[in-house]
Amino acid sequence: MARVTVEDCIDKVENRFELVLIASHRARMISAGSQIMVDRDNDKNPVVSLREIAESRLAPEDLKEDFIHSLQKHVEVDEPEAEAVPALIPPNDGLRSDAIGDIQFDRMTEEDLLRGLEGLVPPAETEDDGD
């Protein structure tokens, strides 16, 4: 096929700099294994991408959107905001309130902890544990 020039593509993408950006992005997509929309004819990927744009096989707006998306590091997702749940005041069973910020801690003596640990049963051995 005849040579493709910027003038062949300028009616599809008016800004030459934008044309270079989206054509190079498309060439990278082709290198990564994307399906080619025109015959290759021993052309390299940048020429194939320009030919695709010149022959209107791809929409320049779609390429531009895809290029912008590929550059984004953080993509915002529109998710519904969580509804505020009213705070519940826990009962004061075994909890003490400290003076700093009214933070509550569960208090347990060392003897209570040891009694709790003594009541634990070791896990039963299985056939796999014997190996």
Rank of each mutant, 00 (worst) to 15 (best):
M1A: 11
T5Q: 07
T5G: 07
E7K: 15
D8T: 11
I10N: 02
I10R: 13
D11M: 03
D11N: 09
E14H: 03
N15R: 10
R16H: 01
F17A: 07
F17I: 07
L19E: 03
L19T: 03
L19D: 01
V20R: 10
V20T: 08
V20Q: 09
L21R: 13
I22V: 15
I22D: 03
A23R: 02
S24V: 01
S24E: 13
R26L: 11
R26N: 03
A27H: 03
M29S: 10
A32G: 13
G33F: 01
Q35M: 14
V38H: 03
R40S: 11
D41E: 15
N42V: 01
D43L: 15
K44T: 03
N45C: 04
N45T: 05
V47N: 13
V48A: 03
L50P: 04
R51W: 02
R51F: 00
A54T: 02
S56Q: 14
L58M: 07
L58V: 15
L58Y: 06
A59E: 14
P60Y: 06
E61F: 00
L63S: 02
L63N: 01
K64P: 00
E65T: 07
I68F: 09
H69L: 14
Q72M: 12
Q72Y: 03
V75F: 05
E76L: 10
V77P: 01
V77L: 14
P80D: 11
E83P: 07
E83S: 12
A84M: 04
A84W: 06
V85F: 04
V85E: 15
V85T: 14
P86E: 15
L88D: 09
P90T: 06
P91M: 08
N92S: 11
D93S: 08
G94I: 04
G94P: 00
R96S: 13
D98V: 14
D98C: 15
A99L: 08
I100G: 02
I100C: 06
D102E: 05
I103T: 10
D106K: 15
R107N: 06
R107Y: 06
M108C: 08
T109R: 07
E110S: 11
E111I: 09
L114D: 10
L114K: 12
R115S: 06
R115M: 07
G116N: 12
E118H: 06
E118G: 01
G119L: 14
G119I: 00
G119V: 00
G119P: 00
L120G: 00
L120E: 05
P122K: 15
A124M: 12
A124E: 14
E125G: 00
E125S: 02
D128L: 11
D128A: 12
D129C: 04
G130T: 10
D131Q: 10
